[in-house]
Design a protein around this nucleic acid. Structure first.
Length: 138
DNA sequence: GCCAACGTTGGC
DNA sequence: GCCAACGTTGGC
């Protein structure tokens, strides 16, 4: 299984809304690198749900329940989306400041390529962040 | 609100 | 195919 991180501005789409809706389309991605990461997602992969701008912290974990397919909101037909479902919240949110300050997380895309909205996470990074968030990584 | 980083567009 | 202009993201 692979691990990922997806970003959302809580004003547009918050973790709370994700929990209330259960399964949702992760649509609206209009960046090739992010889209390629969506394409690489497989059923059962997990992703951290990160609040950008407001909060700047990882607040929960979602699971991929449908693989890449066309995004009907994209008129150009170039971009797709996946479906994700809320799995569980982080017991304790893990902030960007903590991640930046952690020597073991210096290579994470969140630090190195901050604008990318869909990012890969290594298994080591996944476990480390789960430990910081006092959350079972499984 | 500012600005750095970076992606995209379009003229040539 | 280059690159200047412009737009967007997102941290601060």
């Amino acid at each position: 299984m692979a691990y990922w991180l997806v970003k959302s501005e809580p004003f547009k789409w918050s973790w709370q809304q994700q929990v209330e809706h259960g399964t949702t389309h992760w649509d609206g991605v209009r960046n090739y690198q992010a889209s390629n990461n969506l394409k690489a997602m497989r059923l059962g992969d997990r992703a951290f749900f990160y609040h950008s701008n407001e909060g700047k912290e990882i607040v929960g974990i979602v699971e991929v329940v449908k693989e890449y397919y066309p995004d009907p909101s994209d008129e150009s037909g170039r971009f797709g989306m996946v479906d994700v479902k809320a799995v569980k919240p982080m017991t304790r949110p893990v902030t960007l400041a903590e991640i930046k300050a952690d020597p073991e997380l210096q290579d994470i895309a969140l630090v190195r390529q901050s604008r990318l909205s869909v990012q890969p996470v290594t298994e080591a990074q996944w476990r480390h962040i789960c430990r910081l968030g006092e959350t079972d990584p499984a």
